[in-house]
Design a protein around this nucleic acid. Structure first.
Length: 434
DNA sequence: TCTGGGGTCCTAGGACCC
DNA sequence: TCTGGGGTCCTAGGACCC
């Protein structure tokens, strides 16, 4: 048996904890550059604001009382940590699935699950200030589905009222359960997106009950192994295990939309250096090395201007976690794909072909001492020192310099934040890019 | 004027090999 | 006139998730 605990309108709820005057008001939290809505209070949803709704299309709603806030991800991460530690008490093992959701394995937990979940819900509300809903079911997919029911029973009233806030599918009679499943649209099932839902409708499936009654082999034949797995899970056969330890990432990305279009290579170099630096930090944090650096630039697909979208994968001579090498690879790729004359609105760096640093050194037959000969000890220590200083004094205190930055004294990120670097290191050329 | 960021997995098709 | 078959690996693109 699994539970899924989920914070309601999480970012909006976090903001309300610190600004109680916003309770009861239509509220949206906006993405990077205030581009679009990424969280909405119930009142904002009632005004017709969609998830991902561009801000410029809903801005006029300010006149009707809509409040918009720029996202504060550090705050949400902190609130999330506190909420997750309370949720951990619900069972023996927990999987933190996203910033606002957590699965809990309830096997071996005795007593009234419904009552336990309600008590947890109250505790989170009282201690942290975040309203939550809890779904309980025999599999993760069913727990997710139950969570959806708990939410929509509360806010829309489209399911029986006694299922609101906490919904335990296992406690329903077969008749109740069937009636409930027959009232849930297919698109609410975890793993069934808009495309699949549409396809299933076209093939005569109407509700979740139809999917529950489907033969798994047929589901595989018509769609994919993923859908087959979903069908089995809906039938109560666990196919997706709880993951207690977050698996190391297989890719690490840092990408951003620009506030306004960028044309010049210099500006792009600044941006790509920044993205590569951030990505390298994430890479070191998880103890990995990368073998390939992907860089991309593109124009806005929403505008009618000339379109341009290119990417390039730059292979490295050997796996590394060195910021300077990764930045140089990113810049080399950028130079190769850059073309003048386009209004570019987004760029990014992705690190691919990741491997554990320890594993790679082991496979190369290097002990720690020998590896210093290949990657001079000083460089590894420099990266460590940079990470430590930046963790203590703020992100941009010490940075790897680029020729462009040093030469022109222009800096994309610094200009955006109206700051100047306290100190910039200058590293010699590193011929690691193949 | 103005449209997020970061992931995972599966599949199809091509390249290549024997 | 005739033009194999099967396996593996890689990549691009699609779909989905939060």
């Amino acid at each position: 048996m699994f539970a899924l605990v989920d914070g309601n309108n999480f970012y909006a709820s976090c903001e309300r904890v610190f600004r109680p005057s916003l309770i009861g008001k239509p509220l949206v939290v906006l993405s990077n550059n205030d581009g679009c809505a990424i969280a909405r209070s119930e009142e904002a949803k009632a005004m017709g604001v969609r998830m991902g709704h561009p801000w410029h299309e809903i801005r006029h709603l300010e006149r009707q009382g809509l409040v918009a806030l720029s996202a504060n991800f550090a705050l949400y991460g902190d609130m999330s940590d506190r909420m997750m530690s309370l949720i951990a008490g619900l069972g023996h093992t927990q999987e933190v699935y996203s910033i606002d959701e957590s699965f809990v394995d309830l096997s071996g937990i005795r007593g009234n699950l419904q009552a336990r979940a309600l008590a947890l819900r109250e505790r989170i509300l009282q201690w942290i200030g975040i309203p939550t809903c809890v779904g309980i079911g025999e599999t993760k997919t069913l727990a997710k589905l139950a969570n959806h029911v708990a939410k929509d029973a509360e806010r829309k009233g489209c399911y029986p009222a006694h299922l609101s806030q906490v919904c335990n599918l296992a406690s329903l009679t077969p008749g109740e359960r069937e009636a409930l499943l027959a009232s849930i649209p297919l698109k609410e099932v975890w793993g069934i997106g808009p495309r699949l839902a549409q396809d299933m409708q076209a093939q005569g499936l109407k509700t979740t009950l139809d999917l529950v009654r489907m033969d798994p082999a047929t589901a595989r034949q018509r769609w994919s192994v993923i859908v087959e797995r979903t069908v089995r899970e809906l039938q109560g056969v666990p196919c997706i295990a709880l993951e207690h330890e977050p698996a190391p990432k297989q890719e690490i990305a840092c990408t951003r939309s620009f506030g306004r279009p960028v044309q010049g290579l210099r500006d792009l170099e600044e941006a790509v250096s920044e993205f590569a630096t951030r990505a390298a930090e994430k890479l070191r944090r998880q103890g990995s090395v990368t073998g390939q650096v992907l860089v991309f630039v593109r124009t806005s697909p929403f505008r009618k201007t000339a379109q341009y979208s290119r990417s390039m994968v730059v292979p490295l001579l050997r796996p590394t976690d060195d910021t300077a090498v990764i930045v140089r690879a990113g810049l080399a790729g950028l130079k190769a794909i850059y073309q003048e004359g386009f209004d570019l609105t987004k760029a990014g760096v992705m690190l691919l072909d990741l491997a554990s640093k320890d594993q790679v050194q082991f496979e190369l037959g290097l002990d720690a001492h020998e590896s210093d000969k290949r990657q001079p000890e000083a460089r590894g220590r420099l990266m460590q020192a940079m990470d430590a200083v930046n963790a203590r004094w703020g992100r941009h205190t010490v940075r790897v310099g680029t020729v462009a930055a040093a030469g022109s004294q222009r800096d994309w990120r610094m200009r955006q934040e109206r700051r100047t670097p306290a100190y910039t290191t200058c590293l010699e050329d590193v011929p690691e890019v193949r």
